[in-house]
Design a protein around this nucleic acid. Structure first.
Ligand code: ZN
Ligand code: ZN
Ligand code: ZN
Ligand code: ZN
Lengths: 163, 163
DNA sequence: AATTTATTTGATAATGATTCTCATTTATAA
DNA sequence: TTATAAATGAGAATCATTATCAAATAAATT
């Protein structure tokens, strides 16, 4: 039941626009897929609560509303959403994949390994340096993963107090 | 038998210093572990051939020399080596972990998704920008993952020819 | 509304990577 | 040598994810 290795418990809930069912219906149609209750529930789950969720977490949220939904459906739809770019898969180390509704702006992540806080940042300098590196090697860049790991201020403070 | 998703077949073999068994013996002792033939074989496997190998690949190389070695031993020792920093674990997307003898200089990776070529690069500007980002969020940076994905010149050319 | 049909679903099995268990073997210190 | 804690290997276990397939169903067509 418990996931292996590091867990990422507390993440602040990010303020988000109102859940817009008809927009989600539209996205599903764009993908040439059928609109089902399950798929709307999955969207709902992605839209509320913490921004970066695992497939299991999505499954649990969906399952709480409709106990009949199977996790295969969740995995399957998350995969489609990722392929179409509506959802972005984020992988940190050997942990299980996390998903977020693809944000308007590209960003990368800074994760606290003590408390699981995830901060999002965008840094155009880094982005263009990446392009430059790729060009130097004659590569056409298609994607990248930039994940920073460390300890946030609160956790660093807490550790100091203890010792 | 075949690994899932993308395979990384061709990687240029990187020129390396002579295999120095006594140095490896010393490293093992530094870790407070016992020197065994298996462990020396694993070091040998990491030292020859392509730079970034999976546990399975290490196992196969070791197994070719001594068919009695079990894969648990390989995984176990790779883990110890990683914990002590003698080996660096590199994870690319959802693929299985790859390992390399920790290089003298830190570097990140640029991977061709068509042919599997892996280029290593170091970019101090990016590194220090990462530090700056972490500092802005009040984080103490402990590690990071920067993996660039794309298509190398050869593969891009090959694709153009085909179409 | 009823019919049709290609999709979707959920239960379950299968997979691939990695880790764990434990009885047996072995490196090393005394 | 002998003692002993550590290491090993075979296989089971785990975890995340994907595949299979019969039954259910969205949506297009009568
Ligand atoms: Zn980025
Ligand atoms: Zn994010
Ligand atoms: Zn780096
Ligand atoms: Zn490398």
């Amino acid at each position: 039941m418990k996931s292996s290795s590091i867990n990422l418990p507390a993440e602040k809930i990010i303020k988000r626009e109102k859940f817009d069912e008809s927009a989600f219906r539209q996205m599903i149609r764009t993908m040439n897929l059928k609109v089902t209750d399950q798929r709307l529930l999955i969207f709902e789950a992605l839209h509320s609560g913490r921004a970066h969720v695992t497939a299991q977490e999505v499954f649990e949220k969906v399952h709480a509303v409709d106990g009949a939904v199977g996790f295969a459906t969740v995995y399957r739809f998350l995969r489609s959403l990722t392929e179409y770019g509506f959802v972005t898969e984020v992988r940190m180390g050997g942990m299980s994949a996390r998903y977020e509704l693809t944000p308007k702006r590209h960003h990368d992540h800074l994760t606290c390994m003590s408390c699981g806080k995830i901060c999002e940042f965008e840094n155009h300098e880094i982005e263009s340096l990446q392009e430059r590196v790729a060009a130097q090697f004659g590569f056409e860049l298609t994607s990248h993963v930039l994940e920073l790991y460390g300890h946030c201020r609160d956790c660093t403070k807490a550790k100091l107090k203890k010792s």
